[in-house]
Design a protein around this nucleic acid. Sequence first.
DNA 1: GCCGTTTTCGGCCCGACTGTTTTCAGTCG
Length: 586
Amino acid sequence: MMMKSNSVLEEKLRQMAVALELLGENRFRINALARAARVIDSLDEEVEMLVGRDPESAVARLTAIPGIGKGLAAKILEFVASGKIEEHEDLVSRIPAGLFDLLDVPGLGPKAVKMIWERLGIETIEELRAGLDSPDFAALPRMGKKSIENIKKALDFRAQSAGRIPIGKALPIALDFVDFLEKQPGAQRVEYAGSLRRGRETIGDIDLLVSCADPLAMRKAFVEHPSVTQVLAAGESKSSVRIAAGGHALQVDLRIVENRQFGAAWLYFTGSKEHNVALRERAGKRGMRLNEYGLFEDSAKDAREDTERLVAEAEEFDIYRALGLEMIPPELREERWPLEELPDKLVERSLLRADLHTHTLASDGKLSIEAMARHARSLGFHTLAVTDHSRSSVISNGLSIDRLRTQIEAVRAADAEIDGIRILAGSEVDILPDGRLDYPDEILEDLDIVVASPHVSLRQSSEDATKRLLAAILHPAVKILGHPTGRMISQREGLSPDMDRLFEAAADTGTALEINAHWMRLDLRDRHVARAVAKGCLLAINSDAHTIEHFDFLEFGVLTARRGGLPASSCINTWPAGKLYEWLSR
DNA sequence: GCCGTTTTCGGCCCGACTGTTTTCAGTCG
């Protein structure tokens, strides 16, 4: 069975939307297709499973998904049955493949791409670069010197930029900017927004929001920041720049607003786009209008100035309340979560009391058991599990059976020596490609905790991966399935097992599934978390720390967990010590 | 193509900025 059908389907729908855009088709049909693509992408169940479960009622289940109607349900069924969508094949055959790349160039939209394609026959990035200086190009309507210059710069930016960057790299850059802006004279409130605030695993650009006494000076300071390589826009309330930082080229947007409008602006600037649309539609139905300046009575003419008709603006909370909603955390402001029926009592970073997957000098960690434990204690944790690598992980200096026995003794000694935190003797045991574990059962029984993780053979088939991981979940010694798919963000896909079968088995055995908090992993990912929670699984949020700074990564794991709607009660790291030990010894 | 406490037809979120224009189209978020 093909387990990545959603991403394939999403791509096809997206291509259809783009193709129709280039062909100048109906705007709203294009939007509907683009929305459907996003909906499919954020679905937590593969469409094949969704359809296959009960083909009789498949259409009803598909049309129950917001944004999917009869027409798209039929296309999805066609896709599941044949792997293809006829209209997609037809559209793609009419559009040169390179045009999709051209549309990716910042500043080039469908109108411009269509024009240079039809008038000059330009179909690829290379042809665009070569054609930019020709007189024909400058003769196109609305194509002056400045526009051509901007396209050139956009092409250069595209060459340097790696696209979306991992959240772990974006956050420090954003925090540097926040710090910089806070230090400007007259600065009042500075926050980051966008997908960074929503905790997505990768970030396309950094969105910043400022209120201040002197907007002009603030804008000037921003566009003259040392890391800025190009100023894209510098208006009264909105500026955009490109920067080079930490080896990355990326875009940073700054919005300057009145302090009293901060909540409305932060809400708008945090998104997601789909969430904004949903809120604005809701406002409309209730006779109100929502924009980045506030929530207004619909009769307001100029929303920005019409303070008399203002309903709410100051804080996000006020706007949600005025719309008849609870405050929605940024992590849940995504298409996958409807405005009502949101999960409650989400896990929070401050509720974590234990880290159950860490490394020390014994394998590839940088610090001693004692140093790691003292730091964990300073974070308020009652428990730290030391889980160095097993013998097969040669590159990571995995422990032989003898070395593991020595390590267990060392953990016992450290635990006796250090008060205020319990140190568990554990191991991150490799799950071998055939599903066996990397140590014999006898020694596993001597450990307080076993985290079983896949590290090699990450390209095996879905069937083999499913068997492999199921075997680990069903093994009585295994308490946690570590980074279940082994994916590395934008580097390798990792395993693609039948997640539903894993979740059902894990719910049965009470084995916890890990959200590995390292920002290169975040595995399980958000949509898997939602599915696992729905199936009744326990989850763990672990740092996989190799040194004390890595405990900071727990925040990324928490963001991912919250995006998946994980309640604190299902996260074993929040449990009191007694409950956790009882679970470990069951 | 989707959708429905004004609905099964006629709408579809809202605003900022730029560049090339003489009043606005295109792009972006």
